[in-house]
């Protein structure tokens, strides 16, 4: 077995190759992604931490079983986010519910970036902005919410978002643009 230091130097794709030879390395993939995906699941759903954990377990089981389906042309992170996204959606389909925004869980820097991105004209502090954004996002359609979360909170580029949601890059761009317009409109209309 390779040491933790050696494994840390390896790319995701190299780790996948290692797991296919020796499944004992799978835990390293889990270590790399479990927190990111846990936050992502919570962001795109209104699940409790326990439910999100269950979903995350399902995600890693699917990732493990389908490792041979991973296409090296993709970024591994896009692939694992795609599985996570689909697992959350499948779960909501089973429950016949719609994913809701629970808590955007943003740090202050991210809030500043987003506030600039939406070019809010009203005077609004960062805490208020976060509350308002939570409220406004919960009103948006899922297809707009998910691109906003992936772009501005998960910091994915258009190609990665396209690979995660499995839609063309042009559609990603138009959804982000429309979502930004809708958000800006909602933010300006909201009583602060």
């Amino acid at each position: 077995m390779l040491s933790i230091e050696d494994l840390n130097k390896k790319t995701d794709n190299e780790i996948v190759e290692l797991v296919l030879e020796n499944s004992g390395y799978f835990l390293h993939i889990v270590e790399r992604y479990k927190f990111k995906l846990f936050v992502y699941i919570r962001r795109i759903s209104n699940m409790s931490a326990e439910d999100a954990e269950d979903i995350l377990q399902d995600v890693f089981i699917k990732v493990y079983q389908n490792l041979n389906d991973f296409d090296n042309d993709l970024k591994f992170s896009s692939w694992i986010y795609r599985i996570t996204h689909n697992t959350v959606i499948d779960n909501f389909r089973k429950l016949k519910a719609r994913p809701q925004i629970f808590d955007l869980d943003m740090d202050d820097d991210r809030i500043k970036v987003l506030a600039n991105e939406f070019d809010i004209e009203k005077e609004i502090d960062e805490k208020q902005f976060k509350e308002v954004l939570n409220k406004v996002l919960s009103k948006l359609d899922v297809k707009f919410k998910e691109v906003i979360i992936l772009k501005f909170l998960e910091e994915k580029d258009y190609k990665e978002i396209s690979d995660i949601i499995k839609i063309p890059q042009g559609t990603v761009a138009s959804r982000i643009s429309k979502a930004k317009k809708l958000l800006k409109k909602e933010l300006e209309n909201i009583e602060i």
Binding site: L20, S23, F26, L27, V30, E31, K34, F35, F38, A49, E53, L56, Q57, F60, I61, Y64, Q65, N66, L67, N68, D69
Partner: peptide, 22 residues
């Protein structure tokens, strides 16, 4: 936050699973 036993529980579940062949 994630449960501290998350990895152990996951390994327990994965133990019985197999990687689907290419």
């Amino acid at each position: 936050m994630l449960n501290e036993k998350f990895d152990q529980e996951l390994l327990g579940k994965i133990k019985d699973k197999k990687i689907i062949p290419r």
